[in-house]
Amino acid sequence: MSTTTLDAPSATAPSPVTRTRVPHKSAIAVFVLPFGVLFSMFYLLPIGYAVWQSTRVVQREGTFGPPTEVFGGLTQYRNVLENDAFWESIGRVLLFGIVQVPIMLGLALLFALLLDSPLVRGRRFFRLAFFAPYAVPGVIAAIMWGFLYSPNLSPFRPLTAEINFLSADLVLWAIANVVTWVYVGYNMLIIYSSLLAIPAEVYEAARLDGASQFRIAWSIKIPLVMPAIILTAIFSIIGTLQLLAEPQVFRTFTSSVTSDFTPNLLVYTTASVPNPSLAAAFSVVLALATFILSFTFLKVTQRKAFQ
């Protein structure tokens, strides 16, 4: 972390304002407070509230007494641990992520490298064509692909009549295809723009020595854009665990997407029961899992990529 931005100049030329210990105090307040207040209200407070709500349980006096919410300690977390549907949904999105994220990022990297190599003509066109699906919101993309998959509406009826992409066996991969379709171009652009930032001189020597494009890509370009790949990987991992819109839309096309298909669908279903305390406990566990997974990934890859 670079804390040195102001160190150097202030050491040689001390700020004329010496009355207060922190110079420009009010300006800093003007800059930081608006975001800080809203961040506290709409990020920190909800997290705290979810934790608090997840410690509540509903009790009734006798069978017909009025329900009251009381403190229940970690009761809801025991319920989460014992909830098979929750762990199945976690397993499902993990399986999804293990397969889909490498495929998506592999394609994104391949396209970025091809766009950056002298092998491809018409870069501008391909860049826009591959990026275009990103302009389609997840819900709309899912509706479109829902039509394309359906056995009687699809333009590829010969194929969809043979293979039911919306069956219980295949629907997870049908969703994976929708997500891949939307996000490959976006990830490609992130990697591509960091490839563009590499100065040309870096490969000049390799090219003069007769290295092939493949060799240059493998030994020079990929290591240099590793930070960009890691960034896209982290966002993809977060996105995978939070999967909601696509499966929710597919529920209108097929019955093989159940109301507890992904963790977030289960949160939504549980909250509409309504059982806000259990739903809050699900949310907390899910957010923690996401945080730990992406943080661990960041740490592990940073060690590998930068040392």
């Binding site: 972390m1 804390t3 930081v32 800080g36 961040f39 709409f42 990020y43 920190l44 407070l45 909800p46 997290i47 509230y49 979810a50 709500q53 982290i234 977060i238 996105g239 665990l241 939070q242 909601l244 977030n264 949160v267 939504y268 909250a271 806000p276 739903a279 809050a280 949310s283 899910l286 957010a287 996401t290 945080f291 992406s294 943080f295």
Partner: peptide, 26 residues
């Protein structure tokens, strides 16, 4: 400053969807 930046960085890793339900409750 560092505390604030690290908290915000943690916020980057907390996806917006995870906040939807608690926000609704609030």
């Amino acid at each position: 400053r560092e505390v604030l930046f690290n908290v915000v960085l943690g916020g980057v890793l907390v996806p917006a969807t995870a906040l939807a339900l608690p926000l609704f409750l609030i």
